[in-house]
Write a protein that binds this DNA or RNA. Structure first.
Lengths: 368, 368
DNA sequence: ATGAAAGCGCTAACAT
DNA sequence: ATGTTAGCGCTTTCAT
């Protein structure tokens, strides 16, 4: 095209004034220094597209050509530029994942469960941590969507209106959206889900304690304001307890390191006018802390105070007595999310919602 | 450009044969449906470049124009395409991080420590898990480099020759390379490092036990073959023990769930001809398992067997007695890596190597 | 303060 | 089996 301009100067101008003649139109090269497909092609004595073809389907180029390309490839140390590839093909390989916290074992294990199958499928994982803040989540969704990910995996089903708009548009534009760690109602937003119902989980905690004869219950919420799933478990716990005629008190753990917070809560529980005989917690850190605190206070667990946690953290199994808890399928959520995601990328039409089990693991803290 | 072709058909051909006349050169549009800068520009009555300018430096466009653009932006729900931006500008915003395992608390916390400051600086985190396999690591490095990341954060300093070549080239091409979780020698490869010396850490474990009078020691390696850092700690432990005239036996934990493996190791230790009085472990899972196993076997800890772990996992602090352990600065490694990385991106010339502390936390398992 | 043209590095479409 | 052309959506350079 440039050649044309130079061969027929003047004639080609579609402006009123002709192009100023002396300007040679040789702009600064903007290349970023890295080896490109053209470099490889030049070294192999072919054109760029042939190398491109070789890389994507080696069978399509002649064996002799392929050999030359292989040589050129290793001689130049070529690393394909993904941005260019994605831009040209419209098919990216990024999966974006958004979790509340990368360090929390439950989400870390989910990501680990997700990463293996994705890697096997040639997909890459872009992650962000929202800190349980849905405003921040919205801005992260916007940023992540800028990479035109094949799929966006997000934690939970509560998002800002702006986030929902983005998610819906992304979904409409062919980006698979999966909400993990929750499973609720009929999937109002039309996104795939992989998780379990937290209200039901809370009810299961209450039922277990009711079955063991407790009639004065308590639920201790997490100090993390944005953890609505813990709150829903609390709602389920309270409603199930009250439906069975028990009294249910609800309190919030003090802020700070959660095991310490759990220790401190014991004092509060014991000081209550209608002192509960059993208590459930938003998570195992609080529950384990309470177990340790109860023992330190000379209480017998479960005789004086029965305890149930959530999460099946490692600590819960190894204290004496062990902490009864709900065991969410942490890894499985990741693995199943990957499965579902890959199925969608391979053309599965239906938006699926997978309801997983969150079994109760009974240990000494309720079953002395 | 297309308009030109249509206005002067024939005249424009630079080939020998003229373009076959009926072909209107109207190729299939390849657009991917999403709102582009042009769409926004059209809605605002300006051209794309003005919108682009507004997004990057709002001050450069006239207030009235800016208002129109803002309106168009929100009306269209525009999400910038990062691939296009990076390709055009040569300045990406991706930081790639490569860890052995996303679920291991030590690495998960490091990533969490990394993610916050990166996000604040407008950078995004692309992650991969190598499974302690340096071959796999090499292929992941290649893949990650395809995104032309601003920085590549990698775990440890042992890589395949191919990986080293990639890292050196990336580094030469302006990609900051940081090895984390290790600090060794004089940084042979010339990459930045943020971590501590594992050999010295192992020596510290031995010294602690020697100081308490132990003369028959053991070190239990992890069953994970690729965890060379644990092996280096073992090397340090063995050499320090032997230098002090102690006998040091070394064994490898059985494969499988590490706490269980730790329990099983106790039997092996007790059956040894020259039965050790103190044992160090590659990690706290093994150490905690051994602590539980020793208690189950009726041994007194630390009188019959003293134990030291590594990692300061949560469990270690809450068993009774607590497990003495080395506490690596998990979060800090991430946070400092981020600092160093941002300094480099802002033009810091010198490749820095940060040596962090890995303090010994003395608990009941050695200090009865 | 705004725009036109060119090009980032690659691949899809259309040749041969 | 290989090449040519155009264009992905953006930013840079140069011009007004």
């Amino acid at each position: 095209m440039l050649a044309v301009t130079l061969r027929h100067p003047g004639k080609l101008s579609i402006r009123e004034k002709p192009v100023s003649e002396p300007t040679p139109l040789v702009r600064q090269r903007r290349g970023h220094g890295r080896t490109t497909l053209r470099d490889v092609a030049a070294a192999a004595g072919v054109t760029a597209i042939t190398v491109s073809r070789y890389l994507r389907s080696p069978g399509q180029v002649a064996p002799a050509t392929a050999a030359g390309i292989r040589q050129a490839l290793s001689a130049t140390g070529y690393v394909p530029n993904k941005q260019a590839g994605v831009l040209a093909s419209g098919r990216g390989s990024i999966v974006a994942a958004l979790v509340p916290n990368l360090a929390h074992s439950i989400f870390a294990e989910t990501l680990q469960g997700l990463s293996r199958p994705l890697e096997a499928a040639g997909l890459e994982l872009l992650v962000a941590a929202s800190g349980y803040d849905i405003e921040r989540e919205e801005s992260q969704i916007r940023t992540l969507l800028g990479w035109a990910p094949r799929a966006l995996v997000i934690t939970g089903r509560h998002h800002t209106p702006g986030a929902l708009k983005l998610l819906r548009e992304a979904h409409a534009g062919g980006c698979t959206v999966i909400e993990m760690w929750d499973h609720h109602g009929r999937g109002e937003q039309g996104f795939a889900q992989v998780g379990f119902n937290h209200r039901a989980a809370g009810q299961a905690m209450a039922r277990h304690l009711l079955d063991r004869g407790h009639r004065r219950l308590a639920y201790v919420d997490s100090a993390v304001a944005g953890d609505y799933r813990a709150r829903e478990r609390g709602d389920g716990f309270v409603s199930a307890g009250q439906a069975a005629g028990a009294t249910v008190q609800r309190l919030t753990a003090p802020a700070g390191e959660p095991i310490t917070a759990g220790r401190e809560v014991v004092g509060v529980l014991m000081a209550m006018p209608d002192r509960p005989t059993a208590c459930a917690f938003a998570n195992d850190h609080l529950g384990c802390g309470a177990l340790l605190g109860a023992q330190a206070a000379g209480l017998r667990v479960p005789q004086d105070l029965a305890l149930v946690g959530f999460g099946d953290f490692e600590l819960a199994a190894h204290l004496a007595p062990g902490l009864t808890t709900l065991a969410p399928p942490r890894q499985e959520i990741g693995a199943r999310t990957a499965e579902l995601l890959l199925a969608q990328l391979h053309g599965a039409a239906r938006v699926q919602r997978l309801k997983l089990e969150c079994p109760l693991v009974v240990r000494g803290s309720t079953a002395g």
